[in-house]
């Protein structure tokens, strides 16, 4: 078990090194940032001085080493556009994105699993069929359209909920700002989190449903019924746990993409998160910000995958390879 975790951690580090290389090579291959930063009115001396300041005159290997060294310490250099340390900018923006992602992730998992089980058990019921049909909308409509529709309905027409921003936030500790503690902050969360989580929710729901239908056909479910176990226990204890192995994989990957691809939702709702930061960085070829964002996302994906692998072992005893006892 320990060997398994150590091996997985080693693989994860290797993946991060490679992503680091990709992130770093952007510095070399995506235009010359000096041109963007200094504009038309500039002197050769200005260019050389800035080049020296940013370390862009060093050889490739040295630059890569310095990049990695900095990245491990959370230091991604200075934003070309804002002239401030990238880490500061990201830390300032991260709480907004993380809170949004957390709320929509929880919504997606809770409703996804709940509705998935429901539609599997009541396979032929009217409600289940309506839910299945509606879920097609969630899968097929693009996120920005859902966002705009929600804004139109709840902000413009009904005027119930704010259409943009985080509302009032409260500062917690050194740098964390939260919208959970004020009414306007909570209200502002509703529309963006639904927009962001809807696709994941329908995906999880459809997956849970099909896995569940598969599991309910198994002999051990028939046998559990033949022993007179209550339907509720059969469905939620015996069947649901067996559907979890594939579902956990997908949930893990989807949670990663909720954070990584919050960009569109953040743009639609003018949500002051890292996604919006990234879009602006792309527009201005702000490579340190882009590189840091890339690294951040890959750390998150690799971390989630590692967690998923460890979770498998807890869910499925057949994967506990080293455990004692017969075969």
């Amino acid at each position: 078990m320990l060997a398994f975790i150590i091996r997985r951690v080693g693989q994860s580090l290797l993946v991060l090194m490679i992503v680091g290389l990709v992130a770093f090579s952007m510095f070399r291959f995506v235009g010359d940032p000096i041109d963007n930063m200094l504009g038309q009115e500039r002197t050769i001396e200005d260019v050389e001085r800035l080049r020296g300041q940013l370390g862009l005159d060093q050889p490739f290997v040295v630059q890569y080493y310095r990049f990695l060294e900095g990245a491990v310490q959370g230091n991604f250099g200075v934003s070309y556009r804002q002239g401030r340390p990238v880490a500061d900018i990201i830390f300032e923006r991260a709480p907004a994105t993380l809170e949004l992602a957390a709320v929509s992730g929880i919504l997606a998992v809770l409703f996804g699993i709940g509705l998935g089980v429901f539609t599997a058990i009541r396979r032929d019921g009217i409600a289940a069929n309506v839910i299945m049909a509606t879920s097609l909308i969630g899968v097929s409509l693009p996120t920005f359209l859902i966002g705009i529709l929600l804004i139109y309905l709840f902000s413009v027409e009904l005027g119930w909920l704010p259409s943009f921003g985080r509302g009032e936030t409260v500062r917690l500790g050194g740098w964390w700002t939260t919208g959970f503690l004020t009414e306007s902050g909570l209200r502002a969360l509703i529309l963006p989190s639904i927009t962001l989580g809807l696709y994941q929710m329908t995906l999880i729901m459809r997956l849970v449903r099909s896995e569940m239908l598969e599991v309910l056909r198994q002999d051990y479910i028939r046998f559990a019924r033949a022993r007179g176990i209550r339907e509720r226990v059969v469905n939620f204890r015996h069947a649901l746990k067996n559907t979890m192995v594939p579902v956990v994989t997908v949930i893990g990957l989807q949670l990663g993409s909720i954070i990584a691809f919050a960009i569109i939702t953040e743009t639609v709702f003018q949500w002051p998160g890292v996604g919006l930061l990234f879009i602006n960085a792309i527009q201005f070829v702000d490579i340190p910000v882009m590189a840091a964002y890339l690294m951040l996302i890959s750390v998150m994906f690799v971390g989630i995958n590692l967690l998923v692998d460890i979770l498998y072992v807890f869910i499925d005893p057949r994967l506990r390879i080293d455990s004692s006892g017969g075969k």
Binding site: Q218, D219, Y220, R222, F223, A224, A226, R227, G228, I229, H238, K241, N242, I315, D316, P317, R318
Partner: peptide
């Protein structure tokens, strides 16, 4: 289960693996 029990054909699939 209380009055009537059942034994199935394939013992490999009739127990919940988890």
């Amino acid at each position: 289960g209380r009055e009537i029990s059942m034994i199935f054909q394939d013992p490999l699939t009739s127990l919940n693996p988890l």
